[in-house]
Simulated scan of single mutants.
Amino acid sequence: MKKKWTILLCSVMLVGLLAACGNEKDATPPTTEPTNEAVTPAVTEGQDKYQDGAYYAEGTLDESSGWKPYVVLSVKDGAIATVDWNFVSSKGGPDKKTLDKAGNYGMKAKGNAQADWYEQAAKAEQFLIEKQDPAAITLDGEGKTDAITGVSIHVNDLAVLAKQALDAGPTEPGAYKDGSYHAEAAEFDPASGWKGTVDLTVANGKIINAFFSGVNEAGEDKQANSIEGKYGMKANGGSIAEWHEEAQAAQDFLIEKQDPAAITMNGEGKTDVISGVTIHVSDFVTLSQKALEGAN
Rank of each mutant, 00 (worst) to 15 (best):
K91P: 12
T6E: 15
A121E: 00
Q223F: 07
A203R: 07
G92K: 00
G229R: 09
T32E: 08
Y50V: 07
K206W: 04
V88E: 01
T98N: 06
D157P: 08
Y70K: 13
V12W: 01
G174E: 09
H154C: 10
N204P: 04
K177N: 04
V72A: 06
A38L: 12
A113Q: 15
K108L: 08
E256F: 15
D95W: 09
G53W: 05
L8N: 12
M107S: 03
V281C: 02
D199A: 05
C10D: 02
D259V: 11
K206V: 02
N225Q: 09
I137H: 12
V71D: 03
I7Y: 08
G59P: 06
G214L: 10
G46A: 15
F188G: 11
E172K: 10
D157W: 13
L292Y: 00
I80S: 07
A247N: 02
I153K: 10
S239G: 03
G229F: 14
V43T: 06
E37S: 13
S11L: 02
P30L: 10
L161M: 05
Y181P: 06
A210F: 15
D77R: 14
I255L: 12
A122F: 01
A115Q: 11
N236D: 15
G59S: 15
Y231G: 08
N216G: 01
D259S: 05
E245I: 15
D52E: 13
A135P: 06
P170Q: 09
F284P: 04
K131L: 06
A247M: 07
T197E: 09
E58L: 03
K76E: 06
I274A: 01
L200S: 05
G276C: 02
S89C: 06
S65A: 14
T32C: 15
S192P: 09
Q223E: 14
V39Y: 12
Y118P: 05
I279P: 00
I227K: 09
V72Y: 12
P29W: 04
G66P: 05
A27Y: 13
V88Q: 00
P173W: 14
G267C: 13
N86I: 01
D26Y: 13
D133E: 13
E220W: 01
T278W: 01
I279W: 00
A109C: 03
I7M: 07
G232F: 14
N36V: 13
D52R: 04
D199I: 08
E187N: 07
A291F: 01
V285A: 07
S288Y: 05
E125M: 15
G205Q: 02
H182S: 05
Q289I: 13
Q258M: 14
Q248R: 04
A291S: 05
A185G: 13
D133A: 14
G214D: 04
V39M: 14
E220F: 00
G205R: 00
Y70F: 05
L254W: 14
D77K: 10
